[in-house]
Design a protein around this nucleic acid. Structure first.
Lengths: 208, 208
DNA sequence: CCATGCAGTTAACAACTGTTCTCTGGAATT
DNA sequence: AATTCCAGAGAACAGTTGTTAACTGCATGG
């Protein structure tokens, strides 16, 4: 199925990925709107002008980073929401999954949290679009749940948004606790669990 | 009580405020980490070197902006949480208050949302500190509520954080809808109201 | 096998940055 | 009235930025 790329295109994608990786590293300590194209090419070890072969601007690169950071996350979210088990187990599993993801891709998570409200419009819009997709997907998974009988579409969507936002908040807290002692990480876990539990209690009694 | 400042100190504070105002305007379309000190002084019409008379760096100015944006907000929050009335009324009033605040100080709100996870550490820390204060204050107000009997401190604090985060999310949504048609603003209002309602339902049945 | 295409290079540009040092005019202090 | 103080100005610094143009070498398709 996958057509093997020629030597040429392979090299190109390799430098492109190197640019993305270098940018992501640089963005751990600054915002996209202050990221210079020369800074990125210097980190890769390539001429400044080579940048233009891959991206029109750093904003363009930012949009590509959004795709890289969130694009592959959709299946994971779907399965997380729709896993079976009682409420407590599901909450624990979801939080565990977020914690693992932050551990595995801290720079990606930081980038999304930072640029969601950041100074570069196209990137903001790309993130909003992906998060809206997440909310829609969570909503369709929630709809399948027996607890959702009697719920109208608007309420399901608002609950989905609540979950998505809560997910991001939790991820951001784990990020801050990345280099902190294990104790603080567990505090984050427990607070997040209780917040999700409160939301699920509200959900259970919504139709009273 | 208030000692009238000399001509000298008055002029100084005036330029200082002009710098803060100019910076806030410039920050509507970029992040703090890309804000140049020359950019700010140029906008005010003052020599670049004058900047150093007031701030050590743009990061320092950012911290001052956090104080300006959030420092005066504490009394407002306290009274909002502790106002009487049934749950529905209180929710409506809180959201109305957020909407008015975003209308009155959009640049401040944008700045906080943007720099909360932004690329400048001291500013991030200043914001986190203020938000932690908010959470503590909300917690003590919640504790006075008759609905909170039987709640332990940890649970009250996690609920307070939930409210504070929800407040920021709502403010950010109003911000995006600032120049949008009235219809979208009302959608934001309704979604926010339902989310707060779900949380308060969860709160009511928490001890089951 | 040869001509084309194109990723990456080199060099140069005007404009911009933060920071230093020196200076000045007028308010504040004595 | 004489002196000190200090917010802001001015000029200069080395270094940075994005963008342009013309180039080189090598993989590619005819």
């Amino acid at each position: 199925m996958s057509h093997t790329l020629g030597i040429r295109q392979a090299q190109k994608q390799k430098t492109r990925q190197a640019l993305l990786d270098a940018a992501l590293t640089l963005l751990e300590e600054q915002s996209l709107s202050s990221l210079g194209l020369r800074e990125v090419t210097r980190a890769v070890g390539v001429a400044p002008t080579a940048f233009y072969r891959h991206f029109r601007s750093t904003a363009d690169l930012g949009v590509a980073l959004v795709e890289e950071a969130l694009g592959s996350l959709h299946p994971m979210i779907r399965t997380t929401v729709s896993t079976a088990g009682d409420s407590g187990e599901r909450i624990a599993r979801a939080i565990e999954l977020i914690a693992r993801h932050v551990d595995a891709y801290p720079a990606h998570v930081r980038f999304i949290a930072r640029e969601r409200h950041g100074g570069v419009q196209p990137v903001r819009e790309a993130i909003q679009a992906q998060l809206a997709r997440f909310a829609e997907e969570v909503k369709t998974e929630l709809a399948k749940d027996p607890e959702s009988v009697g719920w109208n579409d608007d309420d399901l969507l608002m609950l989905a948004h609540l979950y998505v936002d809560q997910m991001l908040i939790t991820a951001s807290l784990f990020l801050e606790a990345l280099e902190a002692p294990q104790e603080q990480r567990e505090r984050v876990t427990q607070v997040a669990a209780r917040q999700l539990r409160l939301i699920s209690v509200g959900r259970r009694h919504w139709l009273d």
